[in-house]
């Protein structure tokens, strides 16, 4: 597999949100606006790249029986690192995303990539895999946030596009499920057409 395709596969063929349907909690919970979705995506990408690299480096040293607990400890450490850095330098984003930042620990995408990719590949490829999947996740979350913000608040990236009030339901909980459902159908249709 070429290096480039390791990155691109995460965006379309193995898109974590629309194809693999992983990490649904932050996908639904944080996409009330495009900027929040993007922030969540980038935060997850940060953890994903670092944990992928470290796990690919130590995979040979850890006995099979304690593999999963060790991975969880490593991932949890990077999440805590992210929490401390965000509190120091991006406090308002940290507050907005709230509970979903510590919950990156239990995001199936991160542990999933450690198991499926990082423990069998070298550090460089694992980093690229982290970047690819992370970008795919970030892109999906940004798009969902964009659609919800536009329909619910008539704005894009906090800039008002139309005057007046949008259909508020899209910013609230039901809109999260419904927008994601329809976007998934759209994604299926588009990828079918591309084949």
């Amino acid at each position: 597999m070429s290096r480039l395709s390791i990155i691109t596969k995460g965006i379309i063929k193995e898109n974590p949100t629309f194809v693999l349907v992983l990490g649904m909690c932050p996908t639904l919970g944080t996409t009330t606006s495009a900027i929040n979705g993007m922030g969540m995506g980038l935060a997850t990408t940060f953890v994903l790249i670092l944990s992928n690299v470290v796990i690919s480096l130590v995979a040979g040293l850890i006995p099979a029986k304690v593999r999963i607990p060790s991975y969880i400890v490593i991932i949890a450490s990077f999440v805590t690192l992210l929490q401390l850095l965000m509190q120091a330098f991006l406090p308002s984003l940290y507050e907005t995303l709230g509970l979903f930042i510590p919950l990156i620990v239990v995001n199936c995408i991160v542990l999933g990539r450690a198991e499926a990719f990082a423990n069998k590949n070298n550090a460089l490829d694992s980093a690229l895999d982290g970047i690819g999947i992370g970008l795919g996740f970030t892109l999906s979350l940004t798009i969902i946030g964009l659609v919800r913000e536009l329909l619910g608040n008539l704005s894009i990236f906090d800039m008002k596009i139309f005057n007046g009030d949008g259909a508020l339901a899209f910013v609230l909980a039901p809109g999260a499920f419904i927008v994601l459902g329809y976007l998934m159908v759209l994604f299926r249709k588009l990828t079918e057409r591309m084949k």
């Binding site: 039901p174 499920f177 419904i178 459902g181 329809y182 998934m184 159908v185 299926r188 249709k189 079918e192």
Partner: peptide
Amino acid sequence: SFKGIPIALITAGI
């Protein structure tokens, strides 16, 4: 194209 997860999500929305 709605089969499986998409229709489940829309149901969950309702």
